[in-house]
Design a protein around this nucleic acid. Sequence first.
DNA 1: TACTGTGAAGCTATTCACAGCG
DNA 2: CGCTGTGAATAGCTTCACAGTA
Lengths: 228, 228
Amino acid sequence: MIADPAARQEIPDATVARLPQYLRALSDLADRGILSVSSEELAASAGVRSAKLRRDLSHLGSYGVRGVGYGVEMLAHEITRELGLARDWPVAIIGVGHLGHALASYVDLTTQGFQVVALLDRDCELIGQVIAGMVVGSVDDLERIVIERGVAIGVIATPAQPAQKLCDRLVAVGVRSVLNFAPCALSVPEGVDVRKVDLSTELQILAFHQQRKSPAGHRRTPLLEVAP
Amino acid sequence: MIADPAARQEIPDATVARLPQYLRALSDLADRGILSVSSEELAASAGVRSAKLRRDLSHLGSYGVRGVGYGVEMLAHEITRELGLARDWPVAIIGVGHLGHALASYVDLTTQGFQVVALLDRDCELIGQVIAGMVVGSVDDLERIVIERGVAIGVIATPAQPAQKLCDRLVAVGVRSVLNFAPCALSVPEGVDVRKVDLSTELQILAFHQQRKSPAGHRRTPLLEVAP
DNA sequence: TACTGTGAAGCTATTCACAGCG
DNA sequence: CGCTGTGAATAGCTTCACAGTA
């Protein structure tokens, strides 16, 4: 269709979830000085099939050139805009254990549309320390800090037990996007998005498939080829 | 494809991905001494709808009792078995930066069907140090260690650059399940499963939806309703 | 009665295959 | 010609609604 002036057609969730991968692949190509790429090549870089890639991109508008491919720079720019990464989103990380520390130091963030503006913890030993260039604040000041610094996205990197209450407090002061690393489901009112990242869940899914591969085997058979 | 010995019907991927959540909810209920639970209650704990839960569980068999509900202990046991968590899977973590450190210390793992049997890094400063009760080994010894310790699942917690090569080495010595935290796609031969966890991707998906909530706004407008 | 398990319907996502364009 | 963008077909997932059962 004649997409785009500001004419927003609904973009499918499955497509949105893949746009970051395409963006990453495009950045790599740009770094290597490549100016143009076909759906076949870009799909391979991102680990999907080309028909899927073309369908996904078609939801953004017609940014390809038939017979040629997609302009790397231009497509990257469009995806960046579509994902809302043209501006910097202020992020607060709640819980500065090993994981919170890792997240705070994660360089990709600062270069990709996000800025960590607050690190909060409950532990008096941590409060006041400088981590990744930020002073750790007290979780008691959560409401004040979130409001003062205009936090848009909250990252919960605490144990399960305090997670729901912390989430409620974030939502109460206007945060409508939460990334949850705590191993529990969070309930939030309509209009608030929660995404969950869970190491255990991922490993358990792998274990399920692994089990199917080695039905009764405790024995490792490293160089055995699988018979279907 | 071919159903296996114990009358295995293919369990849908979407269902497998939710079983860990159900298992967690059941563990919580068990801890609180609850013996029986309805689909409605369990679904609420896990954050899904009851029809979906019942459909999911129906793929495992008929473990519910009409008019009553599901036995907490028994259902937890069935899911544990189905996911392949009755035994302990040996896990190797490659890359002991902040993230690898966080993963190594993640208690849930050891109590839920996994055992971290190797921590590997490239950095001479780290090699030999004890982290979470384990001596960090050299990534140069990857092949020997993976074979000696029977590693079934490899966790890649390095930067993007070395990730593909490390993955290839894991696969070459028989690892067929990989959890990838590096921000890049990994390509693996048929028969090897890769799951990817990517903080940036998750935040970018949140940013997309957040942007739709506050269309042109730099201003925070918490109570504004969107007009279609 | 109060619940599960499931046929049937509806919805979303993926893939095929090719028309259409540069 | 070579490639994109997309109608049409297919596959997979979710939800409804209720028959069936302890």
